[in-house]
Amino acid sequence: MDVENRVRTAVLDHYAVGRDDVDAASVTFLGLEPIEILRIPGAGEVHYATLGGSRHPMGDPADLLADPLRGPRAELVLTLLASGGPQVGVGRSLGVLAASPAVEGVVLQADALLDLSEPLWRNAKFTAVLLGESELPEVALPDPADPVRYLSVTPVTATEAAWVRLRGAQALRDAWAEAGIDVRDPERSAVNL
């Protein structure tokens, strides 16, 4: 089963682009297959989508035997306004996040807060991300494998990450909506909490 090609086709179809219309980079971690990051231009925005994190299902690292087919599978998509220009280093950061299930046993899911403890890209004020539901549909795999879900990645500041820990993900999303903050803006300020 070639999970990566199924996911690549689904992402390119969703954004209605061809393989030649996207830039790709890959990040390699010792002992793991490479994670590819696609940079997909859109109307006034750019999407960064991971490929390779869903090759294997995520599972509990305490399990003695991992099921090679069953279990949740996820990839990540980050959408930023294109007006900010290219974000140097964002591909590496997304690769680290997508590899975290294999490296650290993390299960990627909506409302998860993941802290990189370093800027997501050069000169970024964001050091963590909040995962959420994505507009990309699930990618079906042959039975008995679970489908691949795309999760949206929203960059958050250290203050916003603390807010999530205290009040929850939805409280932060509500604060963004109330303040009229566009979380796709790479230059946005943190919400006043």
Rank of each mutant, 00 (worst) to 15 (best):
E33Q: 15
E33K: 13
P34F: 05
I35C: 05
I35S: 06
I35L: 11
E36Q: 15
E36F: 04
L38E: 03
I40D: 00
I40E: 00
P41D: 12
G42L: 10
G42K: 02
A43W: 14
G44Y: 04
E45Y: 00
E45G: 03
V46D: 00
H47Y: 07
T50H: 11
T50W: 01
T50S: 12
L51K: 00
G53K: 04
R55G: 07
R55S: 07
R55T: 09
H56R: 11
P57M: 08
M58P: 04
G59E: 13
G59Q: 12
G59V: 08
G59N: 12
D60K: 15
P61Y: 14
P61Q: 14
P61G: 13
A62W: 07
D63T: 14
L64P: 01
L64G: 10
L64R: 12
L64W: 15
L65C: 07
L65S: 11
A66Y: 09
A66V: 10
A66F: 14
D67R: 11
P68N: 13
P68D: 15
L69W: 08
L69Q: 10
G71H: 10
R73P: 01
R73N: 11
A74R: 03
A74T: 03
E75K: 00
E75W: 01
V77S: 07
V77Q: 08
L78T: 03
L80G: 00
L81E: 01
L81D: 01
S83Y: 06
S83A: 13
S83P: 03
S83M: 06
G85N: 11
G85P: 06
Q87R: 07
Q87A: 09
V88C: 03
V88H: 06
G89A: 04
V90W: 02
G91C: 08
G91S: 11
R92N: 10
R92G: 08
S93C: 11
S93V: 14
L94K: 08
L94I: 11
L94M: 15
L94H: 06
G95H: 00
G95I: 07
V96K: 01
V96P: 02
V96S: 06
V96A: 09
L97S: 03
S100W: 08
S100G: 11
A102W: 03
V103C: 14
E104M: 14
V106R: 08
V107G: 04
V107K: 08
V107A: 10
V107R: 07
V107L: 07
L108G: 02
L108D: 01
L108S: 06
L108N: 03
Q109I: 02
Q109T: 10
Q109W: 14
Q109Y: 11
A110G: 14
D111M: 01
D111I: 02
A112D: 10
A112N: 09
L114M: 15
D115N: 13
D115V: 11
D115C: 14
L116E: 06
S117M: 12
S117D: 11
E118W: 01
E118A: 14
L120R: 02
W121L: 04
W121M: 08
W121K: 04
R122H: 07
A124G: 12
A124R: 06
K125I: 12
K125P: 02
T127I: 04
T127C: 10
A128S: 13
V129N: 00
L130Y: 02
